[in-house]
Design a protein around this nucleic acid. Structure first.
Lengths: 347, 347
DNA sequence: TGTTAGCACTCTAAGTTGATGAGTGCTAAT
DNA sequence: ATTAGCACTCATCAACTTAGAGTGCTAACA
């Protein structure tokens, strides 16, 4: 069977209507609302064909049709016309990013908030991969009789800190000295590039503080590096309560318990290696079967031509693909640009 | 009418049963399950009395009774026997606090998580009031051509940081010099005690960097101080989905939209000035009328004899008061102890 | 005088029935 | 190829019925 233009128009009408009403769409509705110039009976014939081809299905005999996963797939691949953002919205996004950007974490936060607000779905934002970022400043500050705080500033503007025990008798002067050496040796180095020779150099210069150094270097390498890496922010989770397909509490609970696990988030954000730009996963294309009735739209963001991470929007399969794609595209561009500015010439 | 012992027993039975089943309790059930040695008919008479006294009410004519707010109040004030935590649970709490405590924020986080897990309700944790904490270390680090990062370490172990613009031509050396002066003047000072004379002294020593100083001091005073103050962590919000009284999505949405506003959280955590220890607010005793069907149990935590903040558990009026009171009491003690250790001799 | 059995009564929850209407597929006419 | 017409299916809703849980009252009992 061939997919002629009229079939396309009918499929498009069904999908658009179902996206906005969440109700099965009948032949009469289509003929009335989307003037195709043919009678309901004709449309019924075409719909029977579309169903046979797998693009739509019937919840039960006397109901209208709803799009199948295949139908949505055909829609996003061939039929969808992207929506234009209003001046207002685009302005809001731009302002959201221009407004006193100070730190990577803050930028990601705002991205999530805007994404979920603009789409009314759940937003996911992955922290950027910054393995190539380098140490900018390291400082040890004495906090108590045997306690110090280790502060590490990365060139990305990220600041990590961590309490650590120190010997009883150590003074702030000692710590300044240690900080000085660490700074001299590590400043400008990337996380991945600290090698044994370098550490030996440090030991050599600070032989008598060996035990502090051991701990400090361990913390710098293991803990501090790993803390911020590959976290995923969730925003607007409650928006799913507004979707009619989630008026059943049990379904909400299933989805929420999935979203509570970081692994799941990582899995569903995952995109095929070669995918540039935007990826759409519909229903059963998602890695978890509990998400059959959800779709996920993701986009990568980058600085230069290095992809740093992914942002995504999670909604029901019946989500407004056209709008979400436009929004997420705009957001990922803005995010990339802002990060570029923030990390200017530093990554 | 007098509240004799039998009435008390019956009221207690009604409340216990309703708390565990969420169903109205009939006279037959009581006589069967809670062997009081009297027939349902007798119990019916007593229940009629209890209803007249306002302790219980009938959802409709042919249903059993449920406790009224007054009934719950009488229960928590006079009838409730506190539950004992199991060895296991108490151990888990203790271990939760002992395990590598490094920072105030982390402690609060864990507190929230444990509270919500142990009770299966929603936990609220207010950040401690640390207005009396003092500056331990201040550092400016050059990040880009005209950008620096300001790092402030408080004696509580809290670390704040903030990007700030600086003049194009400034060097890291200049910034070190400024940091040095700021440290010398501000170290050991409390946030509240920075006075004009002090600032003049700083200006005097660093006349040529006046514009940087203006910004830095402003950030230190306004932004950094206010950021972490009086935030309220929410944990286990989704637990409300497990309560049968919230099987209606609309009710969930109303409650969630309340909990999204920080003011609300502050209001419902608020406790009367003189209240030492644990406060229980039942239904309409809550400040928001949308929370008529919720109860809130709060406890303060302190270091020394200074109250620093409040933790709380939010559940339906039908919540398990005995257990929650025990848990929250244990948690607040542990939290106080841990903070004491963490801020040892520093506040 | 307090307790209890018995009974009529009330009200909800759950099930049944029937009407309505949206929607379909098929057929025959255009 | 298109469409009008028609018989048919099925969900939804309202009206009605039923079963059962629970009550209040009364009269009998200890």
């Amino acid at each position: 069977m061939k997919m002629d233009e009229r079939k396309q128009k009918i499929l498009l009408a069904i999908i658009k209507d179902y996206i906005s009403t969440a109700e099965p769409v009948g032949s009469r509705t289509i003929s009335r609302k989307y003037k195709l110039g043919v009678s309901p009976a004709t449309i019924r014939n075409e719909m029977a064909d579309l169903e046979e081809m797998g693009y739509i299905e019937q919840p039960h005999t006397s109901a209208g049709r709803i799009p199948s996963h295949l139908g949505y797939r055909y829609y996003v691949d061939c039929l969808m016309e992207l929506e234009q953002l209003t001046e207002q919205e685009e302005g809001a996004i731009r302002r959201g990013y221009e407004n006193k950007v100070r730190e990577v974490g803050e930028v990601l936060n705002r991205t999530g908030r805007m994404l979920s607000q603009l789409t009314n779905y759940t937003a996911l934002v992955q922290t950027p991969y910054l393995g190539q970022s380098s140490y900018k400043h390291i400082q040890l500050v004495l906090m108590g009789p045997a306690q110090a705080i280790l502060i590490v500033v990365m060139d990305t503007g990220a600041v990590h800190h961590q309490m650590m025990p120190v010997p009883e008798n150590i003074t702030q002067q000692d710590l300044y000295q240690i900080s000085g050496v660490l700074n001299a040796k590590l400043q400008g180095r990337t996380m991945d590039s600290i090698r044994l020779t370098l550490i030996k150099e440090i030991y050599f210069e600070l032989a008598k503080h060996r035990n502090i150094l051991d701990l400090a270097l361990e913390l710098i390498q293991d803990r501090i590096t790993s803390v911020s890496e590959d976290k995923i922010y969730l925003e607007g989770v409650f928006n799913i309560l507004n979707q009619p397909e989630f008026h059943n509490i049990e379904k909400v609970k299933v989805l929420l318990s999935l979203l509570e696990q970081e692994d799941t988030l990582r899995d569903i954000l995952e995109t095929p290696r070669d995918s540039q730009g935007i990826t759409i996963k519909i229903g059963s294309e998602n890695p978890r079967k509990e998400m059959q009735n959800c779709s996920m739209i993701t986009a990568t963001y980058q600085v230069g031509d290095k992809i740093l991470g992914t942002i995504g929007v999670l909604g029901p399969t019946r989500m407004d693909y056209a709008r979400v794609v436009t929004v997420i595209d705009c957001m990922s561009r803005n995010l990339s640009r802002t990060l570029e500015r923030l990390l200017k010439g530093q990554v």
